[in-house]
Computed example of a mutant assay.
Amino acid sequence: MTKEELAKFDGRDGRKAYVAVNEKVYDVSESPLWQAGNHQGMHQAGADLTEELKSAPHVRAVVERFPVVGHLEEPEPPKKKKWGIF
């Protein structure tokens, strides 16, 4: 799943709420702490929360309890153009 695809799972308007942590995508839709895709006014579903989790008051194991629904893909680096001899 790309970051663009992940962003569609923001938990709003009945959509599923997914978050990514360390390249794994978790479904937090059923958690009462992620109502409408928002976690206590600090985090929004549909995002990679790897960096934010480093300063969270709980450990990563809390997120790891949720079902894994995918893997976050890194975008491929842009390909260099090959210049031919004219």
Rank of each mutant, 00 (worst) to 15 (best):
26 Y>M: 08
79 K>D: 01
57 P>M: 09
82 K>V: 11
80 K>C: 00
2 T>P: 06
16 K>S: 09
2 T>N: 11
28 V>F: 00
49 L>Q: 08
49 L>P: 05
56 A>F: 06
60 R>D: 14
32 P>A: 01
26 Y>E: 11
30 E>D: 06
59 V>Y: 03
62 V>N: 11
36 A>G: 11
13 D>A: 09
29 S>Q: 04
38 N>D: 11
78 P>I: 03
65 R>A: 12
81 K>Y: 00
74 E>C: 06
35 Q>P: 00
48 D>P: 15
82 K>Q: 06
23 E>N: 09
83 W>L: 13
80 K>N: 08
70 G>E: 10
75 P>W: 01
47 A>F: 05
60 R>H: 02
18 Y>I: 02
1 M>G: 10
14 G>N: 04
10 D>P: 10
53 L>F: 02
80 K>S: 10
37 G>Y: 01
53 L>R: 02
75 P>H: 10
25 V>K: 01
35 Q>S: 06
7 A>P: 08
43 H>S: 10
50 T>R: 05
60 R>C: 00
67 P>V: 07
36 A>N: 14
71 H>M: 10
84 G>P: 09
28 V>K: 03
41 G>C: 14
3 K>P: 12
63 V>C: 06
86 F>L: 12
40 Q>A: 14
16 K>H: 07
65 R>S: 11
55 S>K: 13
40 Q>T: 12
3 K>N: 13
83 W>S: 13
17 A>C: 15
29 S>A: 02
69 V>L: 09
33 L>H: 11
10 D>R: 09
10 D>I: 02
67 P>Y: 05
28 V>M: 02
66 F>T: 01
35 Q>W: 00
16 K>I: 00
86 F>V: 04
54 K>C: 04
22 N>Y: 04
11 G>P: 12
72 L>N: 07
63 V>Q: 04
82 K>I: 09
43 H>K: 10
14 G>C: 05
7 A>C: 02
8 K>F: 01
24 K>I: 01
21 V>Q: 12
10 D>L: 06
7 A>W: 00
7 A>R: 14
15 R>Y: 01
6 L>Y: 07
5 E>W: 06
22 N>K: 14
70 G>A: 05
66 F>I: 01
48 D>W: 13
18 Y>P: 14
58 H>R: 13
37 G>S: 07
35 Q>N: 07
48 D>H: 15
43 H>E: 07
71 H>R: 14
69 V>F: 02
44 Q>C: 08
84 G>Q: 12
34 W>F: 09
33 L>T: 04
4 E>P: 12
84 G>D: 10
27 D>Y: 06
18 Y>D: 10
47 A>N: 15
85 I>R: 15
39 H>Y: 08
23 E>H: 06
21 V>R: 07
78 P>Y: 00
70 G>L: 04
23 E>V: 06
79 K>Y: 00
36 A>Q: 13
7 A>Q: 12
75 P>S: 08
24 K>F: 03
68 V>C: 03
8 K>M: 07
36 A>L: 03
77 P>R: 14
13 D>V: 00
16 K>Q: 13
79 K>S: 10
15 R>H: 12
52 E>I: 04
1 M>C: 03
23 E>C: 05
74 E>I: 09
26 Y>A: 11
26 Y>S: 14
78 P>N: 05
41 G>Q: 11
86 F>T: 04
37 G>R: 05
15 R>I: 00
